[in-house]
Design a protein around this nucleic acid. Structure first.
Length: 226
DNA sequence: CATTGATCATGG
DNA sequence: CCATGATCAATG
């Protein structure tokens, strides 16, 4: 990408207005504006859509462990949706800590921080639609409601309890009502350290927290209702 | 057809 | 390896 990136928005309202300005455009149009060529599909470019919208919105790019809009404390998430407006995929939130868990509580958890304020941007995601022809939808600036946070917290605490007890390898994606713990790695050979059943260090797959589609569907639906 | 385990690219 | 951005694709 040789063109200059857009400047970061200086306020929440500016970010939201800029995001609303992207609604209705196709990814092909937005790619052209960014001086990019859309890949034929996302098989080898899974993060392409997210990075394209980051460029348009002036996100603080890079792989830093900070929100996309650090000054505003806002995280950007693109979400692939069906014709009916329902999410087609779970949403990755962050890597799950598997060691050094002393003193880690929901209140000071990385995941709570990441989900405190999220700019959701729905994008048509069905594979029948060529990537360049997929439309960007209306953005939603979201913070968890009291009920949503309570559900997230319950799942997080259940999962973290299992991790602390050395049962990480017994956790499946079925645990949790709204939050899942699943592998998050380049491949199944990547290993990281975790607690074993006897408190002994073991090597296991890195895991990430993901929001289930039913949960994100509710967020979007709540938005459509308003 | 939703779910779940596996995987792809990039930068530090 | 870990963080960022996620989707793929086999399976129940």
């Amino acid at each position: 990408m040789t063109m200059l990136k857009n400047p970061p928005p200086s306020s929440e309202s500016e970010l939201l207005e800029r995001a609303q300005g992207l609604a209705g455009y196709t990814l092909g149009e937005l790619a052209k504006q960014a001086g990019q060529t859309p890949p034929p599909d996302l098989r080898r470019d899974k993060g392409w859509v997210g990075q394209l919208l980051e460029w348009h919105l002036g996100a603080t790019a890079g792989s830093q462990p900070v929100p996309d809009f650090a000054e505003l404390g806002i995280e950007l998430k693109t979400i692939p949706i069906s014709h009916q407006g329902k999410p087609l995929e779970t949403t990755f939130v962050c890597v799950a800590p598997l060691t050094g868990l002393h003193g880690v509580r929901w209140e000071n958890s990385h995941i709570r921080y990441k989900l405190a304020r999220v700019l959701w941007i729905p994008v048509e995601g069905e594979r029948e639609i060529p990537l360049a022809e997929r439309h960007v939808g209306s953005p939603l600036l979201w913070s968890p409601s009291a009920d949503e946070e309570a559900r997230l917290r319950r799942d997080w605490e259940e999962l973290m309890d299992l991790i602390v007890l050395g049962k990480v390898e017994q956790i499946t994606a079925r645990h949790g009502e709204v939050l899942q713990l699943r592998p998050k790695a380049a491949n199944s050979k990547v290993l990281t350290e975790a607690y074993g059943a006897d408190g002994q260090p073991i090597k296991t797959l890195p895991r990430g927290f993901y929001l289930k589609t039913q949960f994100t569907a509710e967020l979007l639906a709540r938005h459509f209702m308003l």
